[in-house]
Write a protein that binds this DNA or RNA. Sequence first.
DNA 1: CTTTTCACAGTCGCGCGGATGGGA
DNA 2: TCCCATCCGCGCGACTGTGAAAAG
Length: 659
Amino acid sequence: MQLESLLPGPSVNLPKTFYNLSTSSESTNNSPGSTHIDFQEMDRTEPEQKKFLSGGTALLDEAESETFPGNKASAPDARKSSPVISSGDDDLSSARRYNIDELGTDRYFISSSQPSSDVTNPCSLFPYGGQSGSVYSGSNGSRYSSSLHYGSVLPPAGFSSAVCASRSQFASGYQFGQGPGCLYPSYPGPGSGLSSMPIPGSGSAARAQVYLCNRPLWLKFHRHQTEMIITKQGRRMFPFLSFNITGLNLTAHYNVFVEVVLADPNHWRFQGGKWVTCGKADNNMQGNKVYVHPESPNTGAHWMRQEISFGKLKLTNNKGANNNNTQMIVLQSLHKYQPRLHIVEVTEDGVEDMSSEAKTQTFTFPENQFIAVTAYQNTDITQLKIDHNPFAKGFRDNYDSMYTAPESDRLTPSPTDSPRSHQIVPGARYAMQPFFQDQFVNNLQQNHRFYGGERAVPQTNGLLSPQSEDSAASSAAAQRWFVGPVQQSGASTKLDLSYDGEYSASSLLPYGIKPLPLQSPHALGYYPDSAFASMAAGWSSRSSYQRKMTTGLPWSPRPSPPAYSDDLLSSKDKLLDESSTVAPAAASSGSWMETPPALKAVESLESGGYAMVCKRRRISPGGSSTDASPTIKCEDLSSEEYNKESHKAMGYYAFYTSP
DNA sequence: CTTTTCACAGTCGCGCGGATGGGA
DNA sequence: TCCCATCCGCGCGACTGTGAAAAG
């Protein structure tokens, strides 16, 4: 409906899109129509599906050796001419990408109903243009079979169709050979946008929209070229993938899984503080590339009820690592990958429903791209991991100072008076700026009810979030982030229907009931860089604070509170751009910080400066390459704004504190 | 020289078992 | 006195990045 209207492009029926996808391969030197044909003739039985799996991938293989002239031609991206990715380069691209933030909420979610007819104007349709367009399918049959635990296999045809679709539509100028699923982005899209485009598999019945829940955090990493450690025993991703899904059929069953595909045809190496290409990627890598969500299959209502996170997804370089029960995605070091979310409708027994060709939907978020490494290369990334990953808390050796706000910044009551109260009292000051920036992330991260659980607490999405007088703005903000404006009503309705009795009370109760420990985790967030984190840290001892804030709520994502969504960020007169939204606690702590908007440009121009610090080890407060700034963000806000935001934070906080 | 592997220390959550308190 | 529920402390395992050693 209005969904389409939100998207810069005409709408089109999914089936059509599907066909376009498969046939479009012709234009890309792929085996024309092969996938399409196979899809049509595919058997529906489960065994057959599995069997077909390999076949499907084989078909996809054929598509891998195609070129993407369109991409290079149409994408005036710096990367084309220079494979070197510096901070500056990233900024350049990000500039385009992030500008989209200002355009509207619709950019934050991906709808599978993207019109294929927009091929002529992919950029307008998909912010990232060709970036997320070209997709390769696996060359080996094990691509899915190895990891599909539910007997349901993504229809190769459907999958490939999606692949082809993206390719045809966003034809990227990369040329690559064989490989188990590749996606060659280039961030060329002039339209630039935050959310990536959806690769509509089809499915006119249920057009899903997917929101990247912890997107702010991803963006933080993405700005510095995200790195993910891979180990033999498997390493969890951080940030992990977390999505909110809407638009599914409430009663239909779906398998939800993540696939990680090559993002570009290059082998990368970290040299001179930059990521540079180093030959061609080895895309013959064998091994599982798919992680099926443990709760698959499940109903659409189930998937839409809560945040879907893949916190337990592990990455490994051990090709034989998937023999056991644990699902691990096998990657190759120093290769760039793109995670993709797949939603496949299945029958109640978990078997893929092949009754309709519109059962597969694929979503790609460019900010989820990462380079697999066996050891961190960029210290900025390392510091980000340490600062944000609760499991790395032990490495915050300067924890006390990192998140301790200046004495002058404290608000009553005095920390020494009542340590506990410190955690409760929002402290307008602290709540505000940091909250803007990281709080969102923090809250997302806290969404999980169980530690390490794949599931999250029901999304608050405005319904559960406390709103005071600012509720209107807050809601808008929230909507903007999670639910597109147009979708608002729909989403709200959905929430009302499905979450109301079941979630509103139950989910909130825990937070309200537990006065301090629980609310702290929520308000402060697991991530220390939240406003409250810094505040609390500054007021209380490290030990006590840590315990409190981490109690009960793990690092799992929690839906961002409406009041502090991106909308607010944008409302700050762009004061807080993407990067600025990052450095909350950092501002006061001096720990790892993001480059302020103003400095960002400089940084872009002076990628060399970035390079200088890239290979540095952990930087002490104030020593960061971007340390110059953050304070600015806080200070830039007028006292009025300050108070205003503080109140929001206060209200939000209070919501959970007072049952 | 680059990349990978391994042991390590630190943090945290979970589960178990014992201690404690209230009610029958 | 017994039973049950709750609380608390401890140990274990999972998880993290570090840094040195090994491997290529």
